[in-house]
Design a protein around this nucleic acid. Sequence first.
DNA 1: GTCTATACCCAGATAGAC
DNA 2: GTCTATCTGGGTATAGAC
Lengths: 179, 179
Amino acid sequence: MYEKILDIAEQLFMTQGYQATSTRQITEILGVTQPTIYYHFKKKEDIYYAVMLRLSKDIEQNLTKFVEDPTQQLESKLISMVEFLREKHPFNFFVMMHDVQHSLPKEMTTKLYQLFSSSYKGPFIRLLKENREKLQASVDIEFAVSQLFILMASYLDNTNPKDNISEMIYLYLHGIYKE
Amino acid sequence: MYEKILDIAEQLFMTQGYQATSTRQITEILGVTQPTIYYHFKKKEDIYYAVMLRLSKDIEQNLTKFVEDPTQQLESKLISMVEFLREKHPFNFFVMMHDVQHSLPKEMTTKLYQLFSSSYKGPFIRLLKENREKLQASVDIEFAVSQLFILMASYLDNTNPKDNISEMIYLYLHGIYKE
DNA sequence: GTCTATACCCAGATAGAC
DNA sequence: GTCTATCTGGGTATAGAC
């Protein structure tokens, strides 16, 4: 049941957000009563943390594989990694970021942000550092990765009609300006 | 009182979000009782719409002035416009986008998205179209403006430690890649 | 482990007095 | 126009039976 709760909670939290997802809704889908949750978790926010922990472990492992792939170049690695996030994490990134920053208690925010930074951003930062010589000298890598995540958010968001990740990566790498 | 409600509601909605802002909180700040709101507005979501309507009119007028300024070039116009949004709209864009997409009824979402597209995005689209010859031929302008807004969101968000808008615009225009 | 019952709180909204 | 009083419904969480 613990894992089942996480499965449903993951889906609901990531699509509707933390506040909009009630413990009742989770248990209704599972066909059990609402207090059942409180045998497995002490508080609602603990469910959120457990969901994020499970998710981020999986994400980090897989992203790292792409970074270490010796057969691919920077641009195609980036595309693969973003494609992977789209498949594995077909949620609205905005919802997640919003929750981490606004829907949860402060301490939880800190813990979640650390989790997110290492698992999600970490592999991208490593990738760009290993390709430092291909980047403009003035670029701040941590900043550049933040920007990429923001862009990705719009991509993994279904409100964006476009579906061409390589186009997004191209703009990210080369900008919109004619040289 | 109507305008006063909008003033307070604007601030609360834009910082805390729609769901986290209660009618009680708004009226407490104003020093009146909670039902007072329902003399001026039929539903809570009507307050949100009125706030967005007032805000977006102001934003559109001002952004358009920058676009029409004959003394500035593309890059400095972009910087001015984003700076203006930061001053006038010192809110978390994510919060607003999250609300528009997830916290409000579907019909309202549509209305708000149209409002946002014309008032906020409109002037930027116009600016890029008027500078078409300076952009890479492959760039889709509507898409490029969407990307800019996403980037801006991270900028107007206080979680981003960096505070240099021109750096963001530079990356947006030129990308991170060494040519 | 899951149930029933329920406490408690806070939300949006309405009725009707002043 | 704003008030008091109140309805209704939703949420998280707990106690204790089975």
